[in-house]
Amino acid sequence: MFEARLVNSATFKKILDAIKDLLDQASFDCSESGIQLQAMDNSHVSLVSLNLKSDGFDKYRCDRSLTMGMNLASLSKVFRCSGSDDTVTIKAQDDADTVTFMFESKKQEKISDYEMKLMNLDQEHLGIPETEFSCIIKMPSAEFARIVRDLSQFGESIVISCTKEGVKFSTQGDIGTGNVKLAQTNNFDKEEESVIIDMQEPVSLTFACQYLNLFTKATPLSNQVTLSMCDNVPLVVEYQIPDLGHLCYYLAPKIEE
């Protein structure tokens, strides 16, 4: 028997919004420790890694580990039926081929449930090597989304260059070039608004705008985003989900032609 209850169903909806444009379908691996999802997009350029810890849920029970393969467009339809203040309870029997989502309104005057068919997905888990990153940049998530959106108008790629002075985002296209430089802030009172750079060595890498834009769909989940970079290694874009876990995206770099 698997049962997970989240008072704030809106959080799950935000997680879904953050992954459904990258992935058509994905397996949710449920165990005693929580729910995990790891999946690559169809082009094998990016990878989504979601980790929700069991004690972040208001109720969590998982007697036997189970993998629930879901079509994310279908799952989105289910969550479109939930109210923003609803509580969600996710339930599945051991070896079941369906999962049930129950939504309860705050005062419990409305209760709805949706049963969805599960899928058998050929899932391939990738080993992600431990990396000592050259640069770790922590910045407001809304600022990152804004920069990616702005620069995407001009080119297909963004070069992210990090030195100890700051981080520079650059693009070039047919109409010209664009650069955004962010300096490290000294505003330690407001951590949420800070740009903090932890640099061992300067690094400069090129990434596809298309994917960076899809990653920023996670912006509503967290005020801050962390970008971890190292030469010749995929970029890690990490959003902490307060009290529940984290959502990480990995993006393979572009290399010189």
Partner: peptide, 14 residues
């Protein structure tokens, strides 16, 4: 600008 690499060049199946 640049050629897109595959994630499979970096991460191997478990």
């Amino acid at each position: 600008a640049g050629n897109q690499t595959s994630l499979k060049n970096f991460f191997k199946p478990k």
